[in-house]
Amino acid sequence: MRYLVDLGWLRSGLSFSFGEYFDPENTAFGVMRVCNDDLVAGGKGFGPHPHSDMEIVTVVLRGQVKHEDNLGNAEVTKEGQVQRMSAGSGIIHAEYNASESEELQFLQLWFMPRARGGAPSYETSSYEPSQMVNHLLPVVSHTGSEQVASINQDLTIYLSRLERGNELSFHQEAGRRVFLFVIEGELEVSGHVMETRDTARIQNEPHLQLAAKEDTKYMLIDLP
């Protein structure tokens, strides 16, 4: 279940307590604190505001997001790109829809860092969408690489587009968690059917079998 917010310029599906939605039983999944599925109207966005001690990842699904911060970063991120902001000891940033007319859709994910008080930083990374077809493509990890944003936490965010009839398996290590988000399509996960915008929090399932009932785009996060 997700909590839905409609502010006119912003429509959000909230997986965890955020803003007006507060459920003390739903504030975290391991180190994961926020998964907001945001749809932002043209020309609108979030004015300058602070963050600290949080790893914030934005996965752009449609449109372009403009980011600016007090460190001097000013960038536009689009589909096929991911931005990672390590808030550390403090950062002020603003983010807006880069288009005045087209909607912007993105997933914003917040994770607690491995250590508090680090230096704030920001990066964007680009991935090749064709590489996620029938494959779990890492786009964020604690090690990072040329096409993978690095994050100050022991987690990996994968994106995948599974073509109808195809299957993938994922091995969940003991003590780890998996957060699944179906961006679009229909995914059968070890016998459970997930539809567009469904999420799952999975523990103690060493072997996950992912099968596409139709062409399906989804995000899988392996986290502590």
Binding site: G43, G47, P48, E68, N70, A74, S89, I92, A94, Y96
Partner: peptide
């Protein structure tokens, strides 16, 4: 421990 001052009206060149 520390603080950051900012003026929202002049912070962003984006909007």
């Amino acid at each position: 421990d520390s603080r950051i001052e900012y003026i929202p009206d002049t912070f962003s060149s984006l909007h």
